[in-house]
Design a protein around this nucleic acid. Sequence first.
DNA 1: GTACATAATACTGTATCCATAATTATGGAA
DNA 2: TTCCATAATTATGGATACAGTATTATGTAC
Lengths: 221, 221
Amino acid sequence: MTRIAPTALYQEVAERLRQRIFAHELMPGDWIDEKKLADQYGISRTPLREALKVLASEGLVELKPRRGCYVTEISRQDIDDIFPLMAMLEGRCAGDAVRRASPADFAALADIHKRLEAAARDGRIDAFFEANQEFHFRIQELAGNRRMLSVIQDLRKVLKLCRLHSLSIEGRLQQSLDEHRAVMAAFKAGDAVKAESLMHDHLLSGYDALIKMDPKAAKAA
Amino acid sequence: MTRIAPTALYQEVAERLRQRIFAHELMPGDWIDEKKLADQYGISRTPLREALKVLASEGLVELKPRRGCYVTEISRQDIDDIFPLMAMLEGRCAGDAVRRASPADFAALADIHKRLEAAARDGRIDAFFEANQEFHFRIQELAGNRRMLSVIQDLRKVLKLCRLHSLSIEGRLQQSLDEHRAVMAAFKAGDAVKAESLMHDHLLSGYDALIKMDPKAAKAA
DNA sequence: GTACATAATACTGTATCCATAATTATGGAA
DNA sequence: TTCCATAATTATGGATACAGTATTATGTAC
């Protein structure tokens, strides 16, 4: 492990593990072999275990006393709980963002939206996904509530545990794009209430798409 | 340290530290002396450090690389961010709770409310505070969204960092009680929309009271 | 007396080691 | 063969040891 930043080792390890979990290299339910991983990274178990404590707090892994560490398996209940919550939070962010955004902010957001349009036109799902994330994140930043932002990001991390992205559904990408356009229109019109409502429904729409893919959705692995 | 539960040591230590932080025995800004604490508890630094990682994830302490661990100092910005967020979340919970509560649930809630009334009548602030916490918690449980509950509880933990309770303001206890009565009335009437709105405003009202106490509120220590 | 440089100290971060509990493997009895 | 008991192995949790960096103290020059 080549150290670059003056950051602690356990943080780097935590970040690496996060990436591996999000990439589904470590799958939900998988047992995490501390010794193997420590050897892999060329470190001792100490910082690795500290990293696991952090990931456990984030809900990405579960620490079973004396039985080891396992990648969290997200349940249907989790999905049902998280999406309405995200819808409310991101909806609120959109409303607040409209109220607070300067013309320059709006321009920057429009720019991201353009990238979204381009990605959709060319059918580049990955690029669309990325621009989509950025769009949402930017709005959360504009809302100006750091706590709300961090809560949303934490929940999003948990959602990333499930492998399936609703965007891969036929037609969902176009629908998502339409919804984004509507949100942008509300921004342009300075209609905060409408922006909130549209963003709220946009999230629930993603939820519906996900459920349709796999009605059980229990083990999205 | 006498071990009772089959839970890991770092969890017990984390809980003890939480209590000490909430009790303001460890004050915001205080440096946490790992060696001293480990000796105090009769344990090694290993589980203690793991506990600190957990507390850091909860936002109760801050880990500065190579410089140690400090109890988080909550800022005015944090207060301004958290209260509106809590108001929205707890408001939503109240609405959902009204929609889902059975008569038995309502009865149990009314019971807690009675304890609140009694505590207020006798001027027992601590008892009032406790019944108040329980009342809010019960409503969050009734809402039936575990994620929402955990988000709210996490935020509440952070708020507990600031020592001042708005309840200690002259007249605030009575006002709080009135607001609770109104929420209970909405419950009784089965008016979810009103319950949401009342609970939302109840939280903001607590926010106002806190701000009035100390307009800077920056260092509530 | 003050400011700076250097040395001593103390603490953090990581590695290694050990005890205990859990799991797996092995062997015997029904 | 199947089930259970016991032994061997392995992994987790915790303690100890060590290296490197911050901080503080000391001393010297101005």
